[in-house]
Design a protein around this nucleic acid. Structure first.
Lengths: 128, 128
DNA sequence: CTTGACTCTGTAGTCAGGTCCAGGGTTCAC
DNA sequence: GTGAACCCTGGACCTGACTACAGAGTCAAG
């Protein structure tokens, strides 16, 4: 499978594949006589794994770690679990942060309904 | 007030002040004879406004917009409100996204407690 | 008058995760 | 055999919000 076909199937830009390869995330595929990359069919699944892990909030460094972990036996399984738990807890913390911001902002927007003494903006005043 | 004093009081790096000025976020302060920036006392409050707005999820571009809005009368007040509501809704959407990721990840971690047939990692398998 | 701490300018580097480009080579259908 | 469509490489560029640096000038205490 050539670069653009794999890119199309996995829903990424073809340049992204080269970027992942440079980064060491993807193994270098074999080449055709003309020097074109020739990906195996399994590369599609691999890329989907990468994208899914990204959606779950893993960085590319972590995805790489997960990939190296794969197939490493029980110890790797524990390591993968630890990584996932860490990411899960990070997400919970991030959500709590954003929720605080959201509530703050909601409160501020409500000040807009307050009667305005003169021409001052209650929202801007409140942020100050 | 000189650069590092303002920076200290507002809790930012002195370089950040120059950066904000270059960016047009902060007005150029008057200069001493020697060419040093000489900030008015009000700059501390202004910077705190910037930082607070950032905490609320506004980008610096938006903060700039808010600053220009300030003092512009009732129309500006409405514009500020619209900006705040937009930011609030963005936050709600972002929170929902992260919550989905979090739940997905929680589910995955739970697969770790499943009995393992052989040495395969249930988590890695599940992400695939 | 010297020393050390501060400040100035302009430019460049950092982080992540790509994206784009020029200037070539390859493949394939017609 | 030729034109279009694809692919190659190395490197530059992008966003956002800073941060660092070199080389020069300024200020205040002793």
């Amino acid at each position: 499978m050539r670069t653009s076909e794999l890119a199309g199937r996995a829903g990424v830009n073809a340049e992204t594949l080269r970027y992942y390869e440079r980064r060491g995330l993807l193994e270098e595929p074999p080449r055709t006589l003309g020097g074109y990359r020739d990906y195996p069919a399994s590369a599609v699944g691999l890329l989907r794994f990468v994208k899914r892990a990204q959606e779950l909030g893993f960085t590319l460094d972590e995805v790489e770690e997960l990939l190296h972990l794969d197939g490493g036996g029980p110890d790797s399984c524990d390591a993968a679990r630890a990584l996932a738990e860490r990411r899960r807890d990070d997400l919970a913390a991030r959500i709590a942060d954003l929720q605080r911001m959201h509530d703050s902002l909601s409160g501020l927007v409500e000040t807009c309904d307050l009667p305005r003494a003169d021409r001052r903006c209650a929202l801007l005043e409140a942020i100050k």
